[in-house]
Design a protein around this nucleic acid. Structure first.
Lengths: 209, 209, 209, 209
DNA sequence: AATGAATGAGTTTTCATTCAT
DNA sequence: TATGAATGAAAACTCATTCAT
């Protein structure tokens, strides 16, 4: 229903999708707690009662925004994971997916970053978030097994470094503290991969780590 | 008043501090929007009316939590910045400050991470938040100038990678998805510094970045 | 349309009857105010919109339940009234009609007792409800005139005693606080008639009433 | 808190009692489902929010009206039960208590009769209602044991007859279908006792019951 | 006749904030 | 300082009813 982060928009738009999109825009503008159900309905051009035809509550709307978004991201990440390219290329693929989502639908990323990812209320449902971490971790582990990455680094921690770097850059764009021109986006991708994969490269005298 | 993240607690505890501490615990447990003023007062063992003697509003309580916390972090970061140690050591110092705050007061970190850093309402505070980024960036720039780090990487982006990695690890501890034993904390510090400084090291044939 | 309280069900069942029956079951289970129009429709297996083809409103459904029920009761009561049997036999006939309705359709009785008879909104129907009282009162008056009952008792009050006794027993069955086996039903009939007619018997030294 | 049905009003009136009394008046006038929380607050002359300081919900207000009322009735009934007067006198005492409550506080009786006694929602809490029945039944049983009443009548059914007669008369007054002048009230008491005790008298040839 | 999406007035409830004591 | 009763704006949510299909 949602304009997919990873694919193109699906022209035809039913009411449920209309509401979900409106919600994304409104959440992005005013925040989840800063808007009323009526704001979403107004943005969607429907009566607020209709929202309850499609969703059980305001909370459920946010949850759906997340579910029907992250699933796409995850699927894309899995596809990248299964490639047989070098680990560096696969991490680069993951970075592309996450960072380019910003150019495709900034409001959506804004909402996921600000409202969902750290929400204490939604933490339960979000084991799925960590599936993304798992994918990154698996890529790193395989990179270590195949000698592309040094083995003396905890792959779990490394996945947090990689994912955290990406999320922070998205946050910078969301909050407006980091340039987000097309060129900047491409450069951000390269930089993250360069730094993290550089740091994981094996041919170094690995200090006393 | 708050138990400082960077220093020790100041034994005597006045009512204002009592309320502020209680707020941190309650915000950590239920989130800012998920708790009532009465919850904070109850946790502090005072009547909720008293809260309004010390703070203008519930919002102001959160703001104070942030102010009286982040100021410490910032001061500590500035001290590290002005050292004459190698850039790597200085980044390591920053990592220590942020990550060890977790061991000192997890609830406080939880609140800053979840409620303040990404709050749409507190965007005015962002400049202060990002003073920390500036410190990191300056360390990197100096590292580049002094030949310790490669120069073909945007230092601003690099500071996001470093800070994002640290914040993600804190988040992992906050959400319980990452081990936070004493040993793990020490290792996390090392790993982040190792990866990021490794990735920034100049003696590499720097690909085509 | 409703399964008559006093006669047998009319085999074939149109949609209107389907809805009316469903309403009786739902009202009995959750109360008029405790159910939604959609509950009735669901119980009837139709879309809730259809309800508005047959009834002007939810209120009208309840009113129809009453009308098409009480009319039967009343007609039966009138028939009994016009008999030439002794007053005691005629009261016994009334008791039979009311109490046996319970065995025939408990839900319907439940609804009439709980939702209609005492409803503040349906007070206009009270005249019809109390036509039943009038019938009972007339029987008693005639009993007094013919010497079967003592004359120093207000027949109107006596009719309240008689009707109240019956309704309370029905209520006991409705609420499950009184046994309602077939045998109990027959015995209840006898007991009410016995007590009330006994109390109305003239051959007593009538105290100082 | 409530103006007791069985005792005099307690001059001094706290806010909770104010609200409870206002609720009784409003429920009596418009019915529980026909009034809004705001109506109660307005009648009490307080802000509607205050209602939630003293009660958890609108439902709880009704429940309290009942609890803090019926307890009194029950206590009074128990006192009567323990007397050593003849059973007839004791039943007469019960009748007095119930019927005179009407003169003392008609609104309260109206509410209890219309909203509480038959409410499907409140049935759970109301095992207490039946404590009244039990008291009546015990009086009758003792009357039978002591030869004052005939023994071939089920005392449980007889208690329903007695209580039902009283409730129906109250209902008549509530609905305005029965005169309720002072004289009528006294006469109603006598009539109910006369009929029921007359019907229960042993010196009759008891038919084939 | 039949459906169920759509409407929106109406209601309960919450809760930050005030203020008399 | 300290309390907690009192306020009332604000919001989520319900649900009877309408209506295009």
């Amino acid at each position: 229903m949602l304009r997919r982060l990873t694919e193109r928009s699906n022209g035809g738009e039913d009411k449920r999708g209309l509401i979900l999109h409106a919600a994304v825009r409104v959440f992005a503008r005013k925040g989840f707690h800063g808007c009323r159900v009526g704001d979403i309905a107004e943005e969607a051009g429907v009566a607020h009662g209709l929202l309850y035809h499609y969703f059980r509550s305001k909370d459920e709307v946010l949850e759906c925004v997340f579910n029907e978004t992250w699933a796409d991201i995850l699927a894309a990440a899995r596809m990248v994971e299964e490639t047989d390219e070098p680990a560096r290329e696969r991490l680069s693929g993951i970075a592309k997916i996450l960072l380019r989502a910003w150019r495709r639908d900034p409001d959506l990323v804004r909402v996921v970053i600000r409202e969902v990812v750290r929400s204490p209320e939604l933490q339960r449902r979000i084991s799925e978030i960590h599936a993304a971490f798992a994918a990154i971790e698996r890529i790193i582990v395989r990179g270590q097994e195949e000698g592309e990455f040094r083995s003396d680094v905890d792959p779990r921690l490394a996945s947090f470094v990689f994912y955290g770097a990406l999320e922070e850059i998205l946050t910078g764009w969301v909050l407006g503290t980091l340039d987000d021109g097309d060129e900047q986006i491409a450069r951000a991708e390269q930089t993250v991969v360069e730094i993290v994969c550089g740091g994981l490269a094996p041919d170094r005298q690995a200090a006393k780590l």
